[in-house]
Amino acid sequence: MTIMAQQSSPEMSTKIRQQLPTGLLSVAVHEQLFSLDSLMGFAARANLKRGFLFLSKVLGKHWPVRPSLMKEIHEALAAQIAADLPEPVVFIAMAETAVGLGQGVFEAYQRMHPEKSVLFIHTTRYHVADYELIEFEEAHSHAPRQFIHMPKDAAMKNKIMQAQSLVMVDDEASTGNTFLNLKNAFQQFNPNIKRLHLSTITNFMGQERNNSLSARFGLEVTIGSALTGEYEFQQGEYQVPHVAAQAFQAAADRGASTEFGRVGMERELVLDESQVSALAMALPAGAKILVLGTGEFMHPAYSLGIALEARGLDVRVQSTTRSPIMQWGDVSSILQFADNYGEGISNFVYNVADRQYGQVFLCHETPVNAALLEIARQTGADLIHFTKEAHFEKISLC
């Protein structure tokens, strides 16, 4: 990817009008660290709340991405976060889409500032064991209810309760409402936050909202992104299929793990190098590899992908998602299946054609079940079951 000089004057803005099946989207890009085409494309959501999607080509969610490119984005966003944030600093990544991005930005910031007292946690749409939940809303989402688990580990809980700075990470910002809802929920149990930094790949809130963030949030707010601009969407008339988005049941065990960020992490995710080497050595020469995460379980797939790429392999990373998107624009193909968390929610993989890859690894935290076997069948994948960060089990189905 080629880094470009930032654009800052209105005369230099890139203006795009895109007719979607769901309406007319008008975009003005004011500043960018990377070229627009390399960062994002456009897609149509099958969602009456929001009929468009800024489809990220660097996130590793709806589009297959080289893990080294994902790392470059993590580092670019981490470099925009102030080094003098008062400690402890808590990083919060937004589920489902930005879980991997947030953990990557956290790890990059920690590498840049190893002396800082930091903690990473991600929001979730599942309840793990008997952990205390804090709830807030992502109003425009297909699945609006979001939760944070309060850590039981004394040191991590102390960091959350005494945090003076928050870094909230999402893939894009369009209104800032979700960030504000999360900030308000967090302050119910920690009212002492002094600084807030918002980190996004694309920031489409517009100049007026950006300038008023501190006044709107009631504390000092900064924002960093790879691209800034604004948009207008004129929604058209369209029909979407009824697809259940969320079936939250507090007592239900969905197989969601406590090992990978839901209840806090204080350091970089580290895989077992011997296991990664064994996996790499078994791959055919020249194979094109897809490492596929499942839902919120994204960052271990990235970690495995970048470890394989470091060994000279041709790797892409992506994840399944519960977000329904139309086959149009930058979505060329759709695979659909039941979710492996047992909610009865349809999940999807976009832009993965039949037998496009020589090897697919499907990374998951839940026990092997019928849904995982169906995803593996449709993608031709071997299962990679992560039980702990330093241990995974490869399950070949053929």
Rank of each mutant, 00 (worst) to 15 (best):
Q164H: 11
F147D: 03
A154S: 12
D170I: 11
M150N: 01
Q162W: 06
Q146R: 09
M168W: 06
R145D: 10
V167A: 02
I160T: 08
M156R: 04
S141I: 02
P144S: 14
K152P: 06
K157V: 04
H149E: 13
Q164C: 10
A163D: 01
K159H: 14
R145T: 08
M156Q: 08
H140K: 12
V167I: 11
K157S: 07
I148K: 04
D170T: 10
K152H: 14
S141L: 09
I160S: 00
V169H: 02
D153N: 15
M156V: 00
A155V: 13
V169A: 07
I160N: 02
N158F: 03
M161W: 04
M168T: 07
A163F: 03
P151H: 00
A139V: 14
K152T: 11
K152M: 15
V167N: 06
I148D: 00
K152A: 13
A154W: 02
V169S: 03
V169M: 05
M168P: 02
H149L: 12
A155K: 12
S165G: 09
A155W: 04
I148V: 11
D170H: 05
D153V: 08
N158L: 06
D170K: 06
A155E: 10
K152Q: 09
I160Y: 01
A155G: 13
Q162P: 03
E138R: 05
K152V: 12
H140F: 13
A163M: 09
V167R: 04
Q162R: 10
Q146V: 12
M150K: 05
S141N: 15
E137S: 12
I148Y: 01
A139T: 14
A143C: 13
P151K: 00
I148L: 13
V169R: 00
Q146K: 06
H142R: 05
V169E: 03
A163E: 00
Q164D: 03
A155I: 09
H140C: 02
R145P: 01
K159F: 04
D153A: 10
M161Q: 14
Q164P: 02
H142I: 01
P151N: 02
M168K: 03
K159S: 07
K157C: 13
P151I: 03
H140N: 12
M168G: 03
R145W: 04
I160K: 01
A143H: 10
E138W: 04
A163Q: 00
M168E: 03
S141G: 15
N158I: 03
Q146H: 15
I160M: 12
R145Q: 11
R145A: 10
K159W: 06
S165N: 12
Q146T: 09
K159V: 05
P144E: 10
A139Q: 10
K159D: 05
A143G: 09
K159P: 00
M156N: 00
Q162S: 15
S165D: 04
A143R: 04
N158A: 13
M161Y: 09
V167F: 06
H149V: 14
S141R: 06
R145L: 12
N158E: 14
A139K: 13
